[in-house]
Each structure stands twice: as C-alpha cells, then as structure tokens.
Design a protein around this nucleic acid. Structure first.
Lengths: 334, 334
DNA sequence: CTGAAAGCGCTTACAG
DNA sequence: CTGAAAGCGCTTACAG
C-alpha cells in the first residue's frame, strides 16, 4: 500500500516551501517556470493527487453538484442523467447523485448536501419543497419542472402544449372517443389540461371515466385494462409517458386488439424504446439534451454570479408521428 | 444566507469545550447524559450539520464508495445501480457514481476517487484494469463480472450456464437452425460459449454466419436484419441481452414475420420491459438483487477487514419462459 | 518569485 | 466526565 503523497513531502524532497509547491500545482502564474516544471515532474512521478477534502475544507467549496431524481430506473430520468453528467464534468464539477422516492424524507440528503459542501443542486424530485432548507442556506437549487410554492429557477418543457398537440392530432385523424391514461394530480397535470383543451377546441368531450390513473409500465398496463373494460372503450389514448404507453400497448395487444386500427396511442418523452416497439410508438418528444444543458448552465451561472434571481426556461415539445397513432399505415423505423 | 454553524460556535454558546460537543454529537458514551442532551438540542435548533469534508480529512476516510458503470442509460445497469444505492446507504456509505465509456481514459476518475478519499470501488466497467492504480494504493475494488488479468474480487452470474440453458431449451423445442446475436469478444464471451456447448451437446452446429455482432436495441435491430437476409434465416435466436432482443424483435416484426412462429427469441437479463413486449420476451434472468447485495457486502467486508484476499461469487441464472421462445402459444403476462 | 504562518472544521489521544 | 492541544492536507493573504 503506497503511502499517500502530500504537498509537504514533495516540498521536502525538492527543498522548497510547500506553499510554492501548492502554487505550482494549482498553476499560479506567480511561480517560476523552471520551479513549476520541476515540481510538476516530481509530483507526477510520485503519483501525487491533491487531497480534495482538504481543499474543499479550506476553499469552502467542494466542486460537487447534487443531482436529485426520483429513481435510477425511470427511463426518461436516466436519459436525462446521462446528459447532465457530461455537462457537469465539462464545467469541472462532480455530480453527486441521489434518488428519492416520494414518501422518503429528505433530511438525510439535505444533511449530506450541506455537509459535503455541495455548491448547487439540480432537483428532479416530484416535490422540490423539502429542499427549501438548502435554499435558505444559500445553496442554489435549480428544478427540473416547475413546482408551485417554491422560489427555485426551473427548466421545464411545455407539457401542456405537447399534450395539446397530441389531442389536436388525434382530433384531426377523426377520433372521437378518447382517453387520458396516467397520473393527473387531481386534474392539475398540464398534460391532462392540454389534452382536454385540444379536444374541447375540437368540440370533443373527455368524460371522467376516460381519465384513468396509472404510472409506469405496470400502471399503464392495468390502467389500459380498465379502459378496455368500459362498455365503449376509447378509440385513441394519450399516455402520461412512453413507459405508460408501453404498458398500455401490452394490455391492448393481449386482448387481441390492433394498434392503431382498434386503439390509437400516443406517448410522451420519446425514449429510445419508442422506435423499437411494434407498432413504433408515436410520442411527444421532450428536448432532453436542451433540458440538461439549460439546467446545468442555469445552475452554474447562479453559482458564479450569486445572483438570487429566479429564472425560467420553457422548452418546446415536438410531436413525433410513428405508427401507433394511426397517421401512417405501414411498419417502418424512424 | 445563514451563517454556517460549527462545533466551536455551539461550544461557545454553551460554555463547554468544543471537544465535548464533538463527542456528544458523535454519540460517545464518555459524555454525560445531561450534557449530551443539551448539546444535541442546541445543535438541532441551530440546524447544525457536521462538515463532512473536515471529518473526512481528519479521519482519513470519507464515507464514499465509488460506483463505476459504462453508462447511465443501459437498462440492466440502471436497474443494478438502483439496487446498489440503497444497499450502500444502509451501511452508511454514500455512492459516488461515475460512468465511463470504453474509449475514455480513467485518469480523471482515478484522481477523483483518490482525491476524495473514496474508501472502496464497485466497478462495472467493461475493462477493470485501469483501476489497478487504486488497488495499488490500497483502495479495495470489487468487480461486477470477472475480468482476466486483474486481482479483484468479483461477483458474476454464470453467464455460460445461462446461455447453455437457453440453447438447451431451444434444442428441446426442436429448433435446428439457430443464431447468436450480440457481442462475442472474438468468441470469448461466456454466453456464446455456453450457447454453442448446448447446441453441440444436442448435435447441432453453429456456423460462423449465424454468429452476428450487435449491441443494444440498435445493434440488435441491424444485426437481426443481417440474419434475416441470409438465404436460410435462423429459426431461433439467442440474444446477448434483452435490449438487443428488443431491437431484434422489431427487425423481425418489420418484415412481417411472427415471433415465435417464424423466429423464436430468448434474451438475457430479465429487465422490466420483457413482460410488456408482444410477444412477452423469454429470457435468462440475472439475480440482480443478489448481485447488488453481494457486491456491496463483499466490498464492505474487504474495507473493514483490510484483508486483501480475493473472493469470487458466481450466481445462478434462471431461464424464464414467456412467449417469444415458442414453448407457450398464447399471449399472457407473467 | 518564494517562504512562514494562519486557519478551514473536525477528531482524538492525553491529562486531569 | 471534561478540557487543552495537536494535526489531517490544503490555500491564501502577507512579508520579504
């Protein structure tokens, strides 16, 4: 087991003060070219790595950005994390990832974030409000998705608009009996609001029994079963997200019904899987890359400027027509 | 912005030494019940959180476990991470997650791990060898999957056996012309070896043209297309993993062929999606929960015992028969 | 351009 | 049971 190298030891071997070594390593211009070179070479050959905990302690900043999400396993979030990770790295930050489920308490995470000197937080939690203590401590929090009652900057996609596009597209295709399948937060979910608005603008009603709860593949599966048991099952279904839609597809196909000929379907998110379903899943795409970049940019700017102003970015969704909505007949990829 | 609380300030307010406060907070039995109570109450009301960087510096251990994986977005890995995360938490460790792609160099990650005082590493990298510097520094590394040429303890599933089960099952169903679809590392991939062995034990040959490369959904899709373009396409396909199989399903169904009537399919991993495909995907299940627990246990034991002995755990796979392999005719979930 | 010194917030022997 | 002191490894004014 190699003994840990420190600045002092390097300084000792070189016969210079360890502040000089520190300066040389941090690339300060105050240090002689020759001296720096000697120091760097020795440090390198000794495999020296600065102790980041000591540095964090002294500088009162850690280089950590906290990233909080509901679950490692939700497909859209995992794709978002993948995009956030390199964006953080590019700016010299290290992501500290936490997951949180809805009924877990945040206090452990909050302590950890505070205790580690995390410089800022990206929150994708369903409810951001437990992060208020951090905000009060002066730790910037940027939220993925708007949440009422919280003074955080946020990046969101215009889900209401995306849902409107889905509803309008269905209406255009001539469907009348439609359903919304997914979480709807007592009617406050923008996807439900937008979908309903599109139908209403086309003179179509969305009765309560055609609004069914369900989350994820399993929720989509059972929710869709309920819809199919209705005396008049819906002709077209807009799902909360693609995972929900995939669960719904299974329920439809298990009954021997065809998509889109018997039931048309549109999802939300545009996860990678959509293209590989049969039929390929039409969906409302979230601009994931832009979301990640905006979150990271916004946070970094808040950190460096220390400006406490709230900022909001609302990104545009895009309707991606594949096979499941019925606008195209043949099977194809894309 | 609240001023940060420190032990000293608490001690000052209470008129005791700050070492007493430290002891009280860390729950040492050396401190008077009454004193502790007072201290804890004040600390609590002041919102005191210990500075973990200072603690790490002093104790020379950070409470961090590094977790390295190829990608946030590979489905099986994300499921594994989800299981590792709580197991780590339960033991009082914080996971520091890193992703690494194959041609990226590890040096940044290695510095970070060393510099942050990470106490141990779980590596799911495709190649663990760049982690040797950590091992030499005395930082325990436990690998998910065996890798040759590296002295790390590992947890692996018996992929060769799992593949054998898939091949044997296909043989039993009477298929003769079969294919292996997926990465095979010049024939060294245990899945290919096991599959081939099963066929061979049943007197069936696996010609080279029925071994096709392909990774993930896209790789499975294009790889399967190649197989279907053969003058005699395979009757049954064993895929590297479920994502690959899902890509393959799409290619098969796009041609208007039926699964399993025209082409039978078995995947590997048993990701959540399998149950929701139509037809539901038969697969070789990895015991994911057990894998995560073994990885974490093994690492924690190595850390606390400081014993440098290598340990190996090989877990049993399980063949899960659903609809895509042809053993069952009707559509159903499970 | 280089060195001596203070101090970040904590833990941990060591006295008492 | 409590206090005084040293020190983890680093950075950063401050002198020179």
């Amino acid at each position: 087991m190699a003994e840990t190298m420190t600045l002092k030891k390097i300084a000792g071997q070189l016969g210079v003060s360890y502040s000089t070594v520190s300066l040389a390593i941090s690339g300060s211009p105050k240090v002689n070219q020759q001296t720096r070179k000697t120091v760097l070479e020795l440090a390198d050959s000794l495999g020296y790595r600065p102790n980041l905990n000591a540095r964090s302690l002294k500088q009162k900043k850690s280089g950590f950005i906290g990233v909080i999400f509901p679950d490692f396993s939700q497909t859209y979030y995992r794709e978002l994390m993948r995009d956030i990770y390199p964006a953080l790295k590019e700016r010299g930050y290290t992501g500290l990832f936490f997951t949180i489920d809805d009924n877990e308490d945040f206090s452990g995470i909050v302590s950890e974030i505070q205790g580690r000197g995390v410089e800022g937080v990206i929150s994708g939690a369903h409810d951001h409000s437990p992060l208020m203590p951090l905000y009060k401590l002066g730790i910037p929090v940027v939220a993925y998705r708007r949440t009422a009652g919280v003074p955080f900057s946020y990046v969101d996609v215009d889900r209401e608009k995306g849902a409107y596009m889905a509803g309008a597209h269905f209406a255009e295709l001539g469907y009348k009996r439609m359903a919304y399948l997914g979480t709807h937060f007592e009617g406050r979910e923008p996807r439900l609001i937008g979908f309903k608005a599109a139908l209403s603008d086309n003179g179509i009603d969305l009765p309560d029994q055609y609004v069914v709860d369900g989350q994820g593949m399993e929720g989509g599966f059972t929710g869709m079963q309920k819809l199919l048991e209705l005396s008049e099952p819906p002709r077209a279904v807009f799902a909360f997200n693609d995972s929900t839609a995939i669960g719904a597809m299974r329920a439809i196909q298990m009954r021997g019904l065809r998509i889109p000929q018997d039931v048309a379907l549109i999802g939300f998110d545009n996860i990678l899987e959509c293209r590989y379903m049969t039929p390929a899943l039409s969906t409302v795409a979230q601009p994931r890359q832009a979301t990640a970049e905006n979150l990271v940019n916004m946070l970094c700017e808040t950190i460096s400027s220390k400006s406490a102003g709230m900022r909001h970015v609302l990104l545009e969704p895009e309707l991606i027509i594949r096979e499941s909505c019925g606008a195209r007949a043949s099977l194809q990829t894309s």
